[in-house]
Computed example of a mutant assay.
Amino acid sequence: MHQQKQTLRRQFIQQRQALAPEVWQMHSDRICDLLANCPQFIEARTILAYQSCRQEPNLNSLFKATDKQWGLPRCVGKDLLWHHWQPSEPLVTGEYGILEPSAELSVLAASNIDLILVPAVAIDFNNYRLGYGGGYYDRLRADPDWRKIPTIGIIFDFAYVESLPIEPWDLPLNAVCTELGLSSWVTQLSC
C-alpha cells in the first residue's frame, strides 16, 4: 500500500504543479470564496490553516477576514504545533521549506479552535485524505481533543477522487472544498 500511495502522491502533485499560475490562482480564489460563505467558516472565530506550498490551493485571500483569528502550523519533531498568527506577521522557512510562524508567537490549544482547513494531496468521496506521508495530521487528529474539531479538506477538483487507499488509523474529514464546490457536511462521532 505504501508504494501505491507514493505513486498517487507523485501523480497528483505533478498534476497540481502543471497548473498554469493564472489557473492556479483563479481556482484558489474560487475555493476561498466558497469557504468564506460556508456556515462553519462564518461561525468560526479561530481557524487553523496553512501556507500554500507545491501549488496547494492558496488561502491568502481568506486571511483578509479581519474578524477571524488564525493559526498556522510549525513542524516540531513529529508533531504540528499551532501558533496564533495574523497576516501582518512575518513567516519563516521551516524544516521542510514550508513557510511557518515564528516559534515566539503564542501557541494555540485545541480548546480554542473552531475549524481546521486541512491541506491534502487528494481526498476521496468518503472524505479520506491522502497527505504527504509524514503523518502530521493523522497524529494530530488521533488526539481526542483535536479529533472533535471540524475539518474541511482543501484540494483542487482533479484530486477529489472516488477512492484512495486507507489505513486503519485514517479518519475522514467533515467536508471537502474544491473550486467546484463544498461537499455536504458530515458529522463524525467523537471517540
Results as ranks from 00 to 15, higher is better:
134 G>N: 03
163 S>I: 13
157 D>T: 05
115 L>F: 05
178 T>H: 03
163 S>G: 09
112 N>K: 15
174 N>H: 05
123 I>D: 09
106 S>E: 11
123 I>H: 02
154 I>K: 01
153 G>I: 07
95 E>A: 09
152 I>A: 07
161 V>L: 03
177 C>E: 04
128 Y>R: 01
115 L>G: 15
165 P>W: 03
156 F>R: 00
97 G>F: 00
147 R>N: 09
162 E>W: 09
115 L>H: 12
121 V>A: 02
119 P>S: 04
130 L>M: 07
99 L>N: 10
99 L>V: 13
159 A>M: 02
118 V>I: 12
150 P>I: 12
180 L>F: 12
159 A>R: 00
137 Y>L: 04
166 I>T: 15
161 V>A: 05
162 E>Q: 06
143 D>K: 10
109 A>S: 06
113 I>D: 14
136 Y>F: 06
106 S>K: 06
140 L>N: 01
146 W>Y: 12
115 L>W: 02
153 G>R: 02
113 I>H: 05
100 E>Y: 01
173 L>Q: 12
116 I>Y: 01
137 Y>G: 08
177 C>H: 07
172 P>L: 02
176 V>A: 02
101 P>Y: 05
145 D>H: 09
145 D>R: 08
129 R>W: 13
100 E>S: 00
170 D>I: 00
145 D>W: 15
138 D>A: 03
114 D>W: 01
157 D>P: 09
151 T>Y: 02
116 I>E: 08
140 L>R: 00
169 W>F: 09
161 V>N: 08
157 D>N: 06
159 A>Y: 00
171 L>H: 11
101 P>Q: 01
102 S>H: 11
139 R>F: 05
118 V>R: 00
171 L>S: 05
129 R>L: 10
154 I>Q: 02
136 Y>I: 05
129 R>E: 12
110 A>C: 09
102 S>D: 14
149 I>T: 11
171 L>D: 11
103 A>V: 10
138 D>W: 07
139 R>E: 09
135 G>Y: 02
156 F>Q: 01
117 L>T: 10
96 Y>C: 08
151 T>D: 14
171 L>M: 14
119 P>Q: 04
106 S>Y: 10
165 P>I: 00
155 I>Q: 02
97 G>W: 00
166 I>Q: 11
140 L>C: 12
178 T>G: 05
149 I>L: 08
108 L>N: 14
118 V>P: 13
134 G>S: 04
129 R>P: 15
171 L>G: 08
133 G>P: 12
156 F>W: 03
177 C>K: 00
129 R>F: 11
147 R>V: 10
136 Y>S: 06
163 S>A: 04
